[in-house]
Design a protein around this nucleic acid. Sequence first.
RNA 1: GUGGUUGUAGCUCAGCUGGUUAGAGCACCAGAUUGUGAUUCUGGGGGUCGUGGGUUCGAGCCCCAUCAUCCACCCCA
Length: 453
Amino acid sequence: MAKPSIPQGTRDFSAETIRKRNHILSTIRKVFELYGFEPLETPAMENLETLMGKYGEEGDKLIFKILNNGLNDPKNIDKAREGFDKLLEGKSTPSLTERALKYDLTIPFARYVAMNHGQLTFPFKRYQIQPVWRADRPQKGRYREFTQCDADVVGSTSLINEVELINIYHQVFTQLGLEQYELKINSRNILLALAEACGGADKLIDITVAIDKLDKIGLEKVKIELQQRGLNENQIVTIEKYLSIAGNNVEKLAAIEDLLGKNIHTSKGIEELSFIVHHASNTHLAIDFTLARGLNYYTGVIFEAKAPAAVQMGSIGGGGRYDNLTGLFGVPNIPGIGISFGVDRIYDVLEELQLFPASIQTNTKALFFNMGENESLFAFDVLQQVRAQGIACEMFHETSKLDKQFKYAEKKNIPYVVIIGSAEIEKKECVIKHLLTGKQENISLTQLSSFLQ
RNA sequence: GUGGUUGUAGCUCAGCUGGUUAGAGCACCAGAUUGUGAUUCUGGGGGUCGUGGGUUCGAGCCCCAUCAUCCACCCCA
């Protein structure tokens, strides 16, 4: 029997981890609900054709495909062989695989909207908290199975949605104690205007891929990459000017107008960004013209939430406006916008910055010490009365050294210890000790429940 | 998918150019002493050195493969 193991990039979650994850998840869920979003869940797997082609060429490679069953059935064998030949050429084929694990929550959501648009009330606001899978090579902050928390609004072009989603980011991160996060925004329209100024919209992807790397590889290397991607010197000069735009949000908007002039895309982009900058109550909001974001379905404003610079984690959330996502599924003219939180990375960041409150580690309010056979039976009755008041508590399972009982409480992060020995029984009181402060006092048994409340 | 790093006890690691029964700290367990987490004292359990091959008289150490890990690229949450 081989040693038991789990697939690369997946994890088991222990009680402690789950509590911490739930802390994040419930914070996000509450904020989503506060803004009127409603829950949705979709299957772990989708039809492969639903997913293919939606995330770009690289994305297609990272989709986990599920092998069809029954390939060895005599009536399927020929097709399976044929399919295998295609597979070796790098093409997936329905004769081998027709289903895949979902890669994100946005595309399944778009599929859902396309299937149900007749029944939905627009604007439709949904949130979704589910695992997704990517066949990426794991490293720090990157897993093959991870949880996304998405909130999307479809059926509205109002920029108020952008503002609200930005406020959601702010509220969630603030509540989690992640004060130093950064929210970058940009607009695809600005990027499009830049591409047009540099030889045409078909250069958009080449330009964005290169400039997105600015803070990572530096200006000189970006210029080299632009050159390799076929941009001429004049165009690179324009891009260099574009990249050198600095200042506060208002100054940046003025500068971009100077540089790119008054064409339709520039004005659209500026209109979007300035509306948001003026209405979002978020000091962490920074316009960043180098922000590109890979997914090619975005058409308007794009976001990226970054972890505090102190931790090397990068993106902990992202999103943007897509004006025709359901069009991919045959239902045109439903505009939408969405954001996503990456729970697993947020977890890693909070862990590194030690931002998880100790109180989330247990429900148990108090541990009753076991001071002997008779004492423990007496204490047990007291304990039941406390539980009847809805206060979670437990008693140490056997009489043993106080040392050991203290350690148990400490390990389970139980805040209070209740000691009822023969002396206390006589006086109808107990010793209650707060483990964090080390302070203890004697209180009467009748007051115990209200003390712990 | 490409290139690299690491893998020794529950945890953090040591183990010199391959040489007897593989070590430390912490943790854990038992006992002594204590109606209060500490300190102290005594004793104890634990590892087929990630896995599988190979070279060698002999492998934790060298070679190959494999799995996992972390890092860079790619991409992204």
